[in-house]
Amino acid sequence: MSERLSVLKTYKLFIGGKFPRTESGRSIKVADASGSVVAHTCRSSRKDLRNAVEAAEKAQPGWASANAYLRGQILYRMAEMLEGKRDELAAAISITGKVGKDAALAEMDASVDRLVAFAGWADKYPQILGCHNPVTGPYYNFSVPEPTGVVGVVCPDEPSLLGLVSLVAPVICSGNAVVLLASETNPIPACVLAEVLATCDLPGGVVNILTGLRDELVEHFATHRAIAGVFAAGVSDEHRTALEAGAAENMKRVQVLDLGPDLAAGFADDSAMESPWVIEPFVETKTIWHPVSS
């Protein structure tokens, strides 16, 4: 019997709940430790980013107005679906040979747990970040957190899955929509995650996944005026400066997580990464005055 030809998967983007190819037609090879190609991913262009932002803008108001309990339920569902792809995702995490099998499984489990943590926060963070302010006068005065809008997420190279989940979960938990740029060195877990997102009741467009080069796309994340904030980790000083300079032009929030040299250890720190204060950078505080009734 002749030897079977291997079928390599070409991963597509995830925009507005659909899986389009990049409009640019370009791709990137992903190789394993021995250097042989194991998959292709899309090399997104600025136009893909534009399309993703449009999809996110459409989806965000509906997502923000979904009740907090439902958002929590959907995040939990996401964790369930992720758990169901445990082996596939662990294999994806270790596909480039940089992360061992056991470490990949541990990262996988930590990612599921992180989603569960923010599923829980979805209807509880407003109690922490909001308050009833004491004022002098016959008024109630409330401060309530509301989502910022469309948030760009620039993921670190490693950890490829936990880094992504840790940046995305707190942002969508409060009703923002996300356009994310996956790990450059190993985008496969993000692509597999897209298949989870497509089947977990998350409305299309709330999370949009791009793969490609930070050198090409960071600038557009920074300057696109419809992106209201950028959350990033593991970016170079140069990209950090580009984000901050571009954002200065249009007043968007930029939050670059500083986790020290060992990003994997930083992201694994539950107490820091599952704090409601990770949600805080991408909510806007609305203060309401209300007369005290007699």
Partner: peptide, 9 residues
């Protein structure tokens, strides 16, 4: 300008 605008611009 090379920059994308927002709907509210």
């Amino acid at each position: 300008t090379g920059r994308y605008t927002a709907g509210y611009d």
